[in-house]
Design a protein around this nucleic acid. Structure first.
Lengths: 208, 208
DNA sequence: TAGATTGTTAATCGATTAACAATC
DNA sequence: TAGATTGTTAATCGATTAACAATC
């Protein structure tokens, strides 16, 4: 089953939109309802569904409840996903305190920092010394890490945690990291997002 | 001049890569040097350049210094870009304290929050009551806002700030916002980024 | 000159969109 | 039945890649 990142992102959006429809009292939906809610076309919705063997009823549409079960299963949301945050600076600390992940079934099991003064084993999300990460990852079966360390440290840390068993990294450091074998890296680059916005706003201002 | 978001993101990456090459002592580069550094093909680099009328010398490549000038001018980095952060919660506060934007010529002029207890006019980035945003935006000529308010408030705040003169929003609230006329919204959705990573890590684990 | 690189055009690839037969 | 929606195929669109003439 070949899927692209965009396709899976849409699946997440479908799931979120279906929860909102469900909260409004809907029980079933048609492909164009969902398309409107997510901002795509009905054909994309049906195509995405067909890729995952999801079928509805001609004329009858789809049941929200069964769809949510399927989407949650595909996205791994039928079980708690534990992640670690590496780097307890401003952004890392904010993510550890952010409550929004819990309701998405994502638990930050621990934070890690190389600076001993950041270590705090009794905070709600314990912050541990980086040396302990390998043991922690193994004993807790963790595969995903959020990386919020300074640029200069990022590649080294990725290599270490990849060797320790991490398979996926969400990288906030504003540089392109080389993926170690068997490790997926997704980047969140806030500087570039802002630059992008600035560019298009400037273009818009000029052409009006 | 028609450009896509991806094209402008590549321009940002070219710029960043060229600074690194320059720091290593390079003065000029060929399209395939830069392509390697950014992870694209040489043809994409030359195509992107041609869109913006950037030309080099056949056989001689491109001068890093002149290229950086052009890229910085295109991306608006030849002048200080002032932005505001709306919502002084965990993420918003972390962004206000984050030093990485400064060296990119992005200044967070102020933060805003609806909660009076968050107001702090004397912190390095002052945090002001949301009511003052309209006046602030006008007097400081600000067009870009970073939105880190709770989901339920996000659409309302976008409508308010758009009416006050904001033209671009970097939205961290995990839901799709309707863009008011003349306002561009870029989304950073951490839950979806993590879900995506979880999906592909799971697929990789299953198929190996 | 011979070799290498640019700038651009044509070919390919993939994703999106349109269309429509099947069918409830 | 008539009307509407699915599931899928074909057509379109856009972006990427390959190729190569121009030229330094």
């Amino acid at each position: 089953m070949i899927t692209t990142k965009n396709c899976i992102i849409r699946l997440s959006r479908y799931k979120n939109a279906l929860y909102r429809l469900q909260a409004l009292g809907f029980v079933k939906f048609f492909s164009d309802n969902l398309a409107d809610a997510v901002g795509v076309t009905a054909a994309v919705v049906r195509k995405d569904f067909s890729v995952f063997g999801i079928s509805g009823n001609k004329k009858g549409g789809y049941q929200i409840e069964t769809l949510l079960e399927k989407l949650n299963s595909i996205l791994g949301k039928d079980r708690l996903q534990k992640v670690v945050v590496i780097g307890a600076g401003h952004i890392g600390s904010a993510l550890m305190r952010y409550r929004g992940f819990e309701k998405e079934g994502i638990k930050i099991a621990a934070g890690f920092d190389i600076d001993p003064s950041k270590v705090n084993r009794s905070s709600p999300v314990p912050i541990l010394p980086l040396e302990e990460i390998k043991g922690f990852i193994k004993s807790h079966g963790i595969k995903i890490a959020v990386l919020t360390v300074p640029d200069i440290a990022a590649q080294e840390v990725v290599d270490i945690i990849s060797a320790s068993g991490i398979k996926g990294v969400l990288n906030f450091a504003p540089l392109r990291l080389k993926s170690p074998e068997g490790c997926i890296i997704n980047n969140v680059n806030l500087e570039i997002e802002l630059e992008n916005l600035i560019y298009f706003v400037n273009v818009m201002e000029k052409t009006k």
